[in-house]
Every structure is written in C-alpha cells, then in structure tokens.
Write a protein that binds this DNA or RNA. Structure first.
Lengths: 197, 197
DNA sequence: GTTTTAACCTAGAGGCCCTAGGAACAGCGA
DNA sequence: TCGCTGTTCCTAGGGCCTCTAGGTTAAAAC
C-alpha cells in the first residue's frame, strides 16, 4: 500500500482547512487521520499531540494574517493605514474562522521561536501607528486597545453575538473611526496620572 | 443509599465552580458525576447534554455579571459610570475566568427566554451610555464598541496574550479613557456617511 | 399503604487521545 | 544486488468522555 506521504506541514495545513470548515474545536487527530486514510497513531510520528498540532495551526494562521495585513497597509499611513489594517484583519477572520480562532490559543515560546510571524506582527502594528506620534508607554497601550477591540468585535461577531438589526459592517466602520479619534486625541500619560491623583 | 439530591441548578452551580477552577472547556459530565458521587448517566435526568449544561452556566454567569455591574454603576453617570462598568466587568472576568468564558458561547433562544439576564444587560448598558447623548444607530454602535473592547481585552488578558512589561491595569485604564473620549466626541452618522461618499 | 413520579442505576456503543511495540518501505553503502 | 538503517505506518490496547436504553428503588402524592 502506497504511503500517505505525511509531514507535519501537510497535517497542519489540513488541520487549518478542517478548522475553517468545522470549527477549530473540532480539529481532531482522528478526523485528520480519516482525511489522510491513515490510522490515528500514525500521525504521532509527525506531531507530538493535539495541543502541539493546534499551536502549529495558530502559527500558520498568524503568519497568513499578518501577511495580508502587511499588504493592505503598505504605502498607507494614519487613518488610511488604520482602516486598511482593520479591514484586512476582519476580512481574514471572516474568511477563515477556524484559522482565526486558532490564533487565540497560547503558543509555547519554543515553537514561536522559529516562526517570524510574531515579530512581524509587532513591527507592522507599531509601524502602522507611527503616524499618530505616540511614545511609550502610550504606544503599547494603543496597541492593546486596538488588539482588544478588533479581536473582541470579531470574536463576538463570529459567535453571532450581535443581535440588533443594525448593520455589522457599519458598526465596524464606526468602531474603527472611534479608535482613530481616540488615537488622534490620545490622552497623554500626564493627563491620565493627573486624573488619578 | 441516600440520594444525592441533584437538580439542574445544583449541577449548574457545580459546573460553574468547576469551570473557574479547571477551565470552562474542562466542564464535563463525568467530572461532575464524580463530584456528586454519582454515575454519569444519572446526570442526564437533569440536564439534556453537555451543550445544554454549558448554556446554563452561561446564563448563570451572565446574570451574576450584570448584577455586579448594576451595583457598580448605580448612582453614577458619564465617565464615572463607564469606569465603574468597565472595572466591574473586568473584576468579574478575572475573579471567575471559567464563568466568564462561558458567557461567550451561543445560547439557544428558548433557554434565554426564562432568564432575564440578557434584557437586564441591555437595559443597564444602554442606561450607562445615556449621559453621552447618543441616538440610534450610534447607540448600538457604541455598545458594540464597548462590548468588543472589553471582551477583547479580557479574552487576551486571560489567555496571557499581553507580553509587554507595561502594566496591564494601567493599559486597561487608558483603554477605558480612550473609549470615554470616543464616546464624548462620537462622530455623528452624517459625518461618517460623508466620509464614505 | 398503595401508586405514581422521579432519581439513580447497570450495560454498552462510539469517539477521541495517546503509548508501546512491531512490520514494511525508502534510501544508502557494500 | 543485497543487506542496513531510519522512518513511516501499523496493530493492540488503555483511559476518558458522551449519550442511549432500559431497569430498580426511593420519595412524594393520594
């Protein structure tokens, strides 16, 4: 019988597709084994366990995501860059729900090491914010705000949490506009500390 | 042998505690059966299946969450109300990670029907925003922005996604401050449509 | 006290994860 | 061409989980 020709990468790619089709929580070694016409145990020669497989999917998806964002923001700055970033982010999450969901799991640092996606994400995100003229720690605060809002919106949207009739695309545009406004008039650290005194 | 005295509510409460201790994804009927000194199958007299049990936990948690928020925002308005809302929300999510995680699953409408938590949440959230003087559809957009940012922040924080040394409490305060600013200077619908023309 | 209702049981099928150890295939040097 | 070696894939099996079908027994209702 011909060998299936399995590799960690092929299994990961199939897992990512499966995640998009059936949901990330249904990414299972049994299902992948069936897909490749192979027994479950055979996959363990290529992948340590389910957890590790899911981390691989997360790294794959994280890389794809930031690549698409990078293309979208290239040559733009300020509000344009923010909107391009946001829309690319949302487009990816909607087109690849399972892959996107995978990016939310905790990934071991040693696995991250040989995947440049994380560093690239940081570079591109901070670069996109350059036009707003923020310095640390405001820059980190701003990044956290953006990540939170983007991820929160997509997570709720994916889960069907927006019940109101209001168009979700329109709300998204307004959210991005609101973030732009917040970034433009970002309260300086001194302002904040004063408010806390 | 004395009966365990199971009810759907007791099982749900135990499941919620288990979720906080071991993670929502580890809420399992087997584990609960062990906890009550009972066989797995016995639980099916009280609960339809795992999915339904998790929805019950979600409703329980949603009710607890909005109750704590309601207490926090009572008697406050504007920025004070927003901060109280935000901090109560975050405090609950941090104190009850499993319960909080449960609130993100999709709950069948017929189960929601006899739980007032959802309506209360809408009332209190829209009421908290009253001071900002927004009308529909801006109100819904604003609610979606807040939900997204809050949930996104807590989801990322719970998952250990904020790696930077910057204090997470401080970033949270700045995020809330940024939201306050966005709500205060909310771009009107006409502005937005103009930007899209 | 009997009847009815429910709570709880045993038995069992099916799915998933994972380990241990064996068989077969590929590429390699002799 | 033959055997060697490493890897691929296998069988076998244990453990945990979900859920169904059908029986027993305790508690509540009459």
């Amino acid at each position: 019988m011909a060998r299936a020709g399995l590799t960690a990468d092929r299994i990961t790619a199939a897992a990512a597709d499966l995640a998009d089709e059936s949901g990330f929580e249904n990414v299972t070694l049994s299902a992948l084994a069936r897909h490749f016409g192979v027994k479950d145990a055979s996959l363990y020669s290529h992948v340590k366990n389910v957890r590790e497989l899911r981390m691989r999917v997360a790294l794959l998806a994280g890389g794809e995501l930031i690549d698409e964002i990078a293309v979208a923001v290239a040559g733009r700055s300020g509000r344009d860059a923010l909107m391009a970033y946001a829309d690319a982010y949302r487009a990816y999450a909607r087109a690849h729900p399972g892959r996107y969901a995978s990016t939310q799991i905790r990934v071991d640092l040693d696995l991250v090491a040989d995947a440049p996606a994380m560093r690239r994400t940081v570079e591109i995100t901070y670069g996109m914010l350059r036009g707003y003229g923020l310095d640390e720690p405001d820059l980190t605060d701003a990044v956290r705000l953006l990540r939170s809002t983007f991820h929160g919106y997509l997570s709720i949207e994916a889960q069907g949490g927006f019940h109101h009739v209001r168009d979700v695309d329109a709300s998204w545009r307004r959210a991005v506009a609101a973030l732009h406004l917040a970034l433009t008039h970002w309260p300086t650290s001194s302002t904040e500390e004063a408010n806390h005194a």
